[in-house]
């Protein structure tokens, strides 16, 4: 599902025009983005929570060339799934068992 499909679904379920539904969905994600930008966490009960995690800078290396690179400090959002959604998602294994298995690659 993409954001535009979410907008269409909200228009249908919420009995809104697509233009209004788009304003709603954009407002939800814009306000969440602003909270994270302010370093504020977000908690949506039953869905999950977001936190902004600061990372210190370090001297890294380009893994291909071995060249030294400076990795600057950064802030990244971390999502933790809520209990309810965690259960719902796990139960969906029975519905659609065709996902990439076990990709543990991290954000970075």
């Amino acid at each position: 599902m993409t954001k535009s499909e979410l907008i269409d679904a909200l228009a249908a379920r919420g009995k809104l025009t697509k233009a209004r539904a788009e304003l709603v969905v954009n407002c939800v994600f814009d306000s969440m983005t602003e909270a994270l930008q302010n370093g504020e966490g977000i908690e949506i009960r039953g869905f999950g929570s977001f936190k902004v995690k600061p990372y210190e800078g370090y001297d890294g290396r380009n893994p291909r060339t071995g060249e030294a690179v400076e990795v600057k400090p950064k802030r990244l959002p971390k999502f933790k799934v809520g209990k309810d959604l965690e259960r719902i998602v796990d139960e969906s294994r029975a519905v659609k068992p065709e996902l990439d298995a076990d990709d543990d690659s991290d954000d970075e």
């Binding site: 979410l6 869905f47 959604l85 719902i88 969906s92 519905v95």
Partner: peptide, 14 residues
């Protein structure tokens, strides 16, 4: 409704 529909979608394996 927005969060409910997102939950339903993820719960459908999507």
């Amino acid at each position: 409704l927005v969060f409910e529909m997102m939950k339903e979608t993820l719960g459908g394996g999507e």
